[in-house]
Write a protein that binds this DNA or RNA. Sequence first.
DNA 1: CGCATGGTTGAGAGGTCTCAAGAAAGGTGG
DNA 2: CCACCTTTCTTGAGACCTCTCAACCATGCG
Lengths: 239, 239
Amino acid sequence: MLSAESGFVPISRVRSFTRRLLAYGVQDVEIARLDTALHAPDSYQTNDVLHPSRPGAPPFFMLSGWACLVRELDDGRRQMVAFLLPGDAVGFDLLTQSRESTRVVAVTPVRVQRVRPSLIGQITGSPGLSRALAIASDQQQTRLINQVVRLGRQTAYERCAHLLLELHARLAEVGETYGDSFRLPVKQEILADALGLSLVHVNRTLQQLRREGLVELHGGSAILQDRSALAEICEFRAG
Amino acid sequence: MLSAESGFVPISRVRSFTRRLLAYGVQDVEIARLDTALHAPDSYQTNDVLHPSRPGAPPFFMLSGWACLVRELDDGRRQMVAFLLPGDAVGFDLLTQSRESTRVVAVTPVRVQRVRPSLIGQITGSPGLSRALAIASDQQQTRLINQVVRLGRQTAYERCAHLLLELHARLAEVGETYGDSFRLPVKQEILADALGLSLVHVNRTLQQLRREGLVELHGGSAILQDRSALAEICEFRAG
DNA sequence: CGCATGGTTGAGAGGTCTCAAGAAAGGTGG
DNA sequence: CCACCTTTCTTGAGACCTCTCAACCATGCG
């Protein structure tokens, strides 16, 4: 029941990014025009590189699955800079655009829809679309700042709570939550690399959150049983 | 000799942001036009808020002094998200634009030149200027990503080396370095809040770098005595 | 049934923090 | 030019958080 792949539904009512664009006030006409500028969906496997760290890679929209903007250090340490979720626009603006030694990697199977390179101008030229992309870019930047604060000044306990709330809020925007629960399709290793912690410590910290009845985690799903208590813990602010 | 305030020089050859715009290929004509859209310089004292966390604050250029994009937690913990240095454009794009509970605060005396609100469109309408601002914004974003990696996956030792190199490189761009040395006009407390460390630990870590002959720090100035060794330590990549 | 993957636990080491005090540096008034 | 005061830097010691290493358990799949 957590699947959205079943059946054939008018595409404009299904795709998460369409949903988001509508929320940002983009007109149906513009979305239809956007469609003509997009390739058919591409599929990727876990660990595939969606966006090499070279310029010129065409931007795309996330249809399904999770990806990460990731940077690896020479000795194998790895930092997930940002999660890229269904509905996200990737590579339009600066973020994830041609960044030295920073790549976009699928952390689950992923489907994306790429922009035909020759038609990028058509998209950025549309007032509604470019405004929507600017909003999305602004939110992306806010999340980056939140990530800095999390890593710089929050404890493991606070970081976990904050990230879980952020993921819930983002997925809720594109209709991928079910009340307080959502699919969390990544290993604790991925969470650790996003939170700047070791796998083991993430495991223990999540257990603490569970023991306190704040969250429930199993089988790749998360339930935030007390969102306001979680928000209190880590000063999470929605929006 | 570390001062740039002496004498009266044609303004277009002095201001750090002018220097940067020229480096980004902006034409003299456009810079002259930009000037007509700017207020006279404003001065601020240490700890003044340059940019409250409300929308609509007019963007500005940093002329001199250092500021920080800062977020404070309820219990007094503080994270410097980014340093804003002479020549930086602040508030044009997303970054630092109306962000909840994130403020721009002067950490030394600061002089800025604000844009007349009614003329923002004129600036963003100019192809050369808007391209330059986009480049600046992209670099800002790259630095944010670097900050995430520093905080998430680097040790105190590496973080200090990396930040010092970044500051040197940025100041070099606007002509505020003198070979390997530059003015570092902030307390260790500020560095600590930028590095996600305690003041005491920053102090000890900087001493280690000094003991090893990599840097020299005193009287508000820094000398990077072995930049390539520092870069090796923290995987710093210029540009 | 056996293997592979991911989650869980234990124990000790290490990095970083806090508290607290002393030294140095810088500014001010006499 | 000195005495004083404030600010900033430095040092010490113990506590705490998080890490690493190394097993062991649970689950799923062939």
